Structures are given as structure tokens and as C-alpha cells.
Amino acid sequence: MSSKSYPLRLPENLLKLAEIRSKEERVDKSTALRQLMYEGAENYVLELIGKGRLSIGRGAEILERAPYEIYRLAEEKDVDIGATMEQYKKGKRIAERKIEAEE
């Protein structure tokens, strides 16, 4: 994952939350802040996918994950993104068989 420095003002309560997390998770405050931001990004991507505003493939690309991980994440967070993990696996098996048959 690439990163880029960005100047940002953070609310005091978010900094306090990061401090709590850094103690709980035994990580530095910067890491705790990044974790909190990434969790928010995951939730927002799942929300956009659920609304049909973002494809699963694009969401996976943004979060730097495989599409099946997006299905797993949605299942863990109990978010409806249209298709289930089982439907994804079934579609993948069908596609693989079709590719094998063409070879």
C-alpha cells in the first residue's frame, strides 16, 4: 500500500480515541489513527457497493483487496452488498470451468 503525507486537523476526541486504541492494541498513535481511518474507509466502500454506486471490483481495488475479501468483509459486518459470498464462489467456479473448457 502506498502512502502520501497530508496535512490534516483532527478533532480532539478522535485523537483521544486513537490514544485509547494505541494502548489497547499496543501500537503507536499514528498507526491507531490509520487503523481507524481504514475501518471507516471499509465501511464507506461497503455502503457505496450496497447502494450500487461502486462495483465490488472497484471497491476491492480502492481497499487493495481481492473481490472475495470484500464479500467476506460484508458478511462479517452484516452488510448487504447484493450478492453473497456463496454466489460469488459459485460464479467463480462456473467461470473457471468455462475457461478450462475453452482451452
Rank of each mutant, 00 (worst) to 15 (best):
S2D: 12
S3N: 13
S3M: 07
S5M: 08
Y6L: 13
Y6A: 08
P7W: 06
L8E: 10
L8F: 11
R9N: 07
L10Q: 03
P11G: 07
E12A: 11
N13H: 13
N13W: 07
L14G: 00
K16N: 14
L17M: 12
A18D: 01
A18E: 00
E19Q: 11
E19W: 03
E19S: 12
I20K: 12
R21V: 04
R21H: 06
E25M: 08
R26M: 09
S30T: 00
R34P: 00
L36Q: 01
M37G: 02
M37V: 01
Y38Q: 11
E42S: 05
E42K: 14
E42I: 13
N43Q: 13
Y44R: 14
L46F: 05
E47W: 13
L48K: 15
G50D: 11
K51H: 14
K51W: 13
G52I: 14
G52W: 09
L54N: 11
L54T: 12
I56P: 06
R58H: 11
R58M: 09
G59K: 14
G59W: 07
A60F: 06
I62R: 08
L63R: 11
L63I: 09
R65K: 15
R65V: 04
A66Y: 15
P67W: 02
Y68C: 08
E69Y: 01
I70K: 04
I70F: 04
E75N: 05
K77A: 05
D78K: 13
V79T: 15
D80L: 05
I81S: 12
G82F: 10
A83L: 14
A83N: 07
M85E: 03
M85N: 01
E86A: 15
Y88N: 12
Y88M: 09
K89T: 01
K90L: 13
K90G: 02
G91F: 02
I94M: 07
A95Q: 09
A95C: 02
E96S: 04
R97I: 03
R97N: 11
R97W: 07
R97P: 00
K98A: 05
I99S: 10
E100I: 04
E100V: 07
A101I: 03
E102Q: 13
E103L: 14
E103F: 14
